[in-house]
Amino acid sequence: MNKLEFTHIYQTLYPLLFRYIYRLHRNEESSKDICQEAFLKLYTETSEGKKIEFIKSWLFKCATNDFLNRIKRNQIITFEPYSIKSEAFEIQNPEEKYIKTERLRHLEYVINKLKDNEKQLIYLYQDEFSYAEISEITGIKLTSIGKTLSRTIKKISTQLQNTKSYELL
């Protein structure tokens, strides 16, 4: 892989990878580090002549493993507040704005209560990865991906309905 090809891949996949890692633990600095490490590893391995068939899955897997290792070694401080997309605040109607903000706070609360692997599944699913790719990245059996995803979505929906506003305070 030459530098031009690599730069194109970097420009395309960096935002996706950063967003995925950032949402897992919400720490901007360490997300940048993890992404840089993953891309550096990709460049090094391809320069050495290693052929990587599915670059996107490979990068996500590499970054996920790095993230989990850092968590194990307590190298990551988590829980910066979410920076909610500005579109949510572009709504002029105050009532609508309130409803949307509340919904996002509810969702944030519910997602925070999920297990790490459930979070990974949901975010990868939202990024439109196939079951096979999710299985490769997370290491969960391919046959279990559909069931676990379906169960997690159900869990989130149920908890969203059952969570009361005072619990968010």
């Binding site: 690599f6 970097y10 967003r19 949402r23 979410y82 969702l107 939202q126």
Partner: peptide, 20 residues
């Protein structure tokens, strides 16, 4: 769910230059 999660996205992601 997918649209709601999408709202958590950072509005702009700065792509740092990759140093070869």
């Amino acid at each position: 769910l997918v649209t709601s999660i999408h709202d958590f996205n950072k509005s702009a992601i700065y792509i740092p230059e990759f140093i070869f």
